[in-house]
Design a protein around this nucleic acid. Sequence first.
DNA 1: AGAATTTGCTTCGAATTCGAAGCATGATCT
DNA 2: AGATCATGCTTCGAATTCGAAGCAAATTCT
Lengths: 173, 173
Amino acid sequence: MTEPDHDPGPGLAPEQVATYFALTEAAGALQHHVEQHLRAEIGLSAIQFRILATLAEAGGRLTMTELADGVVYSRSGLTYQAGLLEKAGLVTRCPSPDDERSTLLALTDEGLARVEQAMPGHVAVVKRLLFDPLSEADLAALGDIMARARDHMRAQPPRSAAPRKRRPASEPE
Amino acid sequence: MTEPDHDPGPGLAPEQVATYFALTEAAGALQHHVEQHLRAEIGLSAIQFRILATLAEAGGRLTMTELADGVVYSRSGLTYQAGLLEKAGLVTRCPSPDDERSTLLALTDEGLARVEQAMPGHVAVVKRLLFDPLSEADLAALGDIMARARDHMRAQPPRSAAPRKRRPASEPE
DNA sequence: AGAATTTGCTTCGAATTCGAAGCATGATCT
DNA sequence: AGATCATGCTTCGAATTCGAAGCAAATTCT
């Protein structure tokens, strides 16, 4: 499971493949465990927790597009989850005062309370699974690397295959 | 996006939260881009490619459980995907000579060819998105860290989530 | 040996996800 | 101003996913 035997072709380092697979599998396993924990503890799916946490970080209110952009999610999926969360009383949907067509998702007090209730145990699980075998230096390096990778991916222009996409300039107005 | 304003509680470093979020978001974005590329290039979903690649790494044959264990996937989902892949002629299902109840998934020549066809472009996308902003030292550090994290997660026993795994609970439901 | 427990996989039903199409609002052009 | 295009969200249908239940083979216990 450590060294692939196929021929990846010229100029491609198998070390990168191994790193990528390790990253993907670890991230998948981590997500799985986190999902289990969140659902068992406070009855939220990982994506729901992520939505609420992103809202909390942003100060409580975001438009659907900003939110979907932040959680790397499809618009329709976000609509579905927003409906669930609204029905659960954790968020409210207000029309934006600026753009009538935009919908602002706002965190309710209960929603914020839920996030704060979930956060310690959530982080504890992540700590145990991800950060336990890592040193301080590892943590710093990983944080630095992943932040850089994330920013790089955010800066990636949308693929040309998309029929209707946002403007190439990802600059907020 | 750097420092959440909520109170995570005592003993929990916000740096870890930031690292975890960066990791999750980057992994999610990477997975999304990879999914797009794989589907557009060779008509495989990410999970299908992962199954085929895992099979190739293992020498061509694995049981369903070993495979599901390797790709962190549900058994039923793997059954579904195995059906699709078998119908596509990329794998075959043979009963195990050792255990009659076990099903061995075997990679066909076409399946192996598909993996090898997909691998270069796949790695190129990963390279561009993930490894482009990283130095050699970053790559080595990331590979080391993620491999350690993955092994640690693999070693994690299922908490109490397992319904009826090994121990016959004296409390029937 | 025979019965009970365990293990491995598949089927089933419900929930979730996504892209495309549809609808409404804002911006731009003439 | 009116028309046209662009943007934001939602609905819709199909595909995928998961856990629980079900079934067959193997191991263990008596």
